[in-house]
Design a protein around this nucleic acid. Sequence first.
DNA 1: GCGATCAGAT
DNA 2: CACATCTGATCGC
Length: 514
Amino acid sequence: MSSFAGRMKEYPNMSLDRFDRENLHARAYFLSHCHKDHMKGLKGPLLKRKLKFSLTVKLYCSFVTKELLLSNPKYAFWEDHIVALELESPTLITLIDEASGEKEELVVTLLPAGHCPGSVMFLVEGAQGTVLYTGDFRLAKGDASRIELLHSGSRVKDIKSVYLDSTFYDPRFYQIPSRETCLHAIRGLVQDWVSRSAYHTVWLNCKAAYGYEYLFTNLGDEFHTQIHVKSLDMFKKMPEILSHVTTDRATQIHACRHPKDEEFVPASRLPCGSSASDGTPLNIISIKPSTMWFGERTQRTKVIVRTGASSYRACFSFHSSYSEIKDFLSYLQPINIYPSVIPIGRGLNTFQMHCICYRMCVNVDVSSSAVIYRPLGTLKRTRPDQPHSCSHTSPSHSTLTGSQTPELFVDDSVKLPSPSIPLSAGRGLSQAESMLIQSEDRCQGDALTNLDAGGEESGSHTHQSEPTESQVSSDFDIPSTPDSHTPGPDDLSDLYRRLAAGEEVVTRTGSQSL
DNA sequence: GCGATCAGAT
DNA sequence: CACATCTGATCGC
């Protein structure tokens, strides 16, 4: 679930996927896709009022997202303020301060995100550098290299920051079977069932969210049928989807839902209450699409699991796996990464570890905008001023890193003390807290050059075998007691040495590994 | 009565 | 099994 506060450090006058609080003052809005957790505040009366008096404030999104959004009457007031942009067409957008007339020009490009219909990533290029807001995404390994607008000529653009969908950025979710694999398996299961008789019916137990449409179109094509859904309204202008769905209950494949019963459905009844016209009882199986994952070493097993006499779970993911995210980031080599899902506890630990090990970035900032907007809400500890033995230079991207312009390195976060850990901690405060983690400080060195899977292993193993509270709170985690200590220079040197040697760096039993 | 927020369920 | 959503309780205005 996204906990991104809405603004990017580099371009605070634009708000993305958040429309409440500080975002009420934005000069332009961006919606990456039409999931509710990315639309917070979007139907708020305050925003509605603001629009009434504004000539310049717009909401930018894809055409599909616009359509889906406006299919809900609660967002109708946005209609005259939405600017739909074509995919992969860099567009000059001028942010205007309506009070002062001050202008700021940006080039914004929508990149397909593969998360749900209409979902995009926003590539923003302007005076403060090139940044990528991923929204939610599912891209396969190697996809980044196929996105032309992430490149300039033959090389990757210099990306200052990636605002990342980090939902599965944890080695626990190392691998998620590909879309193709999952679709193939689901097709097989459906085939096996519906071919038995005309009374054999499949119910796809999907959640109330966009994102399953490609499953519907795929199954529809395969079985020359349409899928029964609750409503077609939102797909009116999307013939590809529209042609594969129907509100006619007389079909063998259903994805209809009922607001009430849900769990009450499986064996006998469909949410829509459909039954065969001649009174013959339907034979119904339910298939619940949900995420399945496999560890790095885990032999991948079945992507379909039987969960009952007539119910199955099938692998299906809207988000990239750990290895897919890693591939994506390693390719882009951004200077900063801002995870949208704040990795708490062990997740944070893992997150930072791996950024160090893979030199995918210089900084990992889990506070997102908090660093900028709540500077006084945070106490920072002094940073060990000893240079660290590390480098963000990747052998495979030496041209990229070598060509980073000096300005790109000038980043507020780099100037802040490091590592910075808030003295008071608590889950509920995560948005307001600043927790800046710097995996390195632009120093040159190659102590980590030979790190490969060995470094990952240590994090992975530790992560998978840490059941206790104390282990959940370890090294880079938020300290829960006043006497927790920030690693000193010696601790860090030792950590880096051990990382370079491929040793396990996080103890299994202790709460401190440094 | 509406909205924000949280716990809980699915 | 960890997504995204909905519902209901509670609180405040």
